[in-house]
Design a protein around this nucleic acid. Sequence first.
DNA 1: CTGAAAGCGCTAACAA
DNA 2: TTGTTAGCGCTTTCAG
Lengths: 336, 336
Amino acid sequence: MVTIKDIAREADVSPSTVSRVLSNKKDFFNPATAAKVRKIAKKLGYRKNTLAANLVKKKNNIIVVVISSVETNFSDQIIKGIQSEAQGIGYDIMYMYTHTTNEEEHKHILETLISRQISGILFVSVILEKENITLLDAAKIPYIFVSIKPDNEHMVIGSDDQEIGYLATKYLINLGHKIIGLAGVDAYPYAGFSRIKGYQRALDEFGIEANEKYIFYGDYSYNSGSQAIKYYHENFSSLTGIVAASDSCATGILNYAYDHKIKIPEEYSIITIDGTNLCNITRPRLTSVTQNFRKMGSLGVRKLIKLMEGKVNTKNKSIFVPVKIDVRSSTARLTR
Amino acid sequence: MVTIKDIAREADVSPSTVSRVLSNKKDFFNPATAAKVRKIAKKLGYRKNTLAANLVKKKNNIIVVVISSVETNFSDQIIKGIQSEAQGIGYDIMYMYTHTTNEEEHKHILETLISRQISGILFVSVILEKENITLLDAAKIPYIFVSIKPDNEHMVIGSDDQEIGYLATKYLINLGHKIIGLAGVDAYPYAGFSRIKGYQRALDEFGIEANEKYIFYGDYSYNSGSQAIKYYHENFSSLTGIVAASDSCATGILNYAYDHKIKIPEEYSIITIDGTNLCNITRPRLTSVTQNFRKMGSLGVRKLIKLMEGKVNTKNKSIFVPVKIDVRSSTARLTR
DNA sequence: CTGAAAGCGCTAACAA
DNA sequence: TTGTTAGCGCTTTCAG
């Protein structure tokens, strides 16, 4: 393995000079020497040992994105956002997969990141446990949460979930729907809970009485969706609108409907939350409250870098990326 | 930052002893000292600086998976396979995203991996250019291709594409179809080309004349699918079977059919290649030649580790993971 | 602009 | 079982 010393010997300069040239410390070397050094480096097939450099600099120019399993069909968009921001920022971006919640696994990951002097961490759809947060804070590695947050102390770059629930519900109300289900959300803080609040706020605003029985709890999954519409269909003939907790959930609804010859949007108007590509692939296409996942990713990287440079403090308030409604074909004005 | 020296001082032993204890070199320390050292390490909140350790060991216990953009809806399964194999192998697994082909970007990634002394690399759906292979070989980092390979010299852990084309086509033939389209494949080596060969071999075997006009070239995408069925529908009334190049492609076919009131499987039998979850989500559900992506991932890790341990040579033949046919509802016996 | 010297934090012979 | 010594490959004062 070729080292800086080998080059120094061959170029008849000191290792320090080689180091300066190779790490491009401008104004600290003479162009002629530089040229010579670079030529020899190339000739010898020199590869810098970044490990050694990092050891002395006490930092590793890597940002690690810790991301929860690929289940969620929006993580690809967040990744795209991150990647789009990755050019020329002076850091390499690497990813590690984990489960959304799994204290031991998270701990292991954090320990390897800490011991490798990672520069910064982006948690995407990962809920970090209290102990692990303590661990991370002690190590003084800057980090940011994207999409979901572990508690109310930390900021997150995500969507305003209450707003999402509110907008979705209001959209259906404005189409004339009065009995509206909310399908597949969970009751835990923070996403599910907030969406429920938004849903209730919208009903309230239009003088419609919210009724707990129209909320079908679940886990945002395809199956939650199928089960929800089954529940609605078998129990409430007057229910005509459904807010689906996620695109997968909405797809479950759509397919149950298809399989049971229930017409969408004639019998039920469905509005989904997320607005991933799935919405264009289903038939009918799904009307959605669309989150800007790409933006979350790019913003996450930008904020993290600011944090690493000490230009911003963690205690900052959460950043909400605007959502929008994309009208497609799964919703219709109520005619009955 | 607490170092091994601090612990040594406090424990009144030498740094080497601390090192031995902390890196668990059994039989090289006495349990009593070990206990003392560990206690102090804990008390001081010691975190090992892996960078320093790696510098002297000249290796970084990280396997990096270089994976092409998240577009492909099967990469999540490969990742799951990789992750399932990741426990207790003594390496951490990190991922980097890149485009399938992009020489400059690949070069940059390789350089950072080499300079960081990464232990091994898994390329998933990435085509490495000749120059970059040279670069990598010079650095002597073991690597393996999963899903696709860059040339014929290198092994790949993937599916037998010719077999896939053959099985898919034969399945339709056995249902009575005679005029069969192949939709959305590309003509490049190696996947597309091999699938075409398999397709032709099946036709041949049953005495059906292969005709180039029934192959609709594309890029495995949703759009390729829509365009393909449009092409078939407008030009060949006798064509009744379609082999779709991918699940996305098949979904494009299905949706075009739906939008144009073409009945599947009554008017066309569709068999798709991949067999991802998408096949269960579409209506009708897609019959598929299913690849075992999960297995590719786990096998990839296993093989790579063997390679890193010098137990196997790269020049090994490709490993084909068996495929199977999953019959769902997009295919039917030809009755006309 | 360049060199000498020191050291980042750890491990690995070698001796004891 | 433990300590001593040297050094991984690089960067960085400090002098010159």
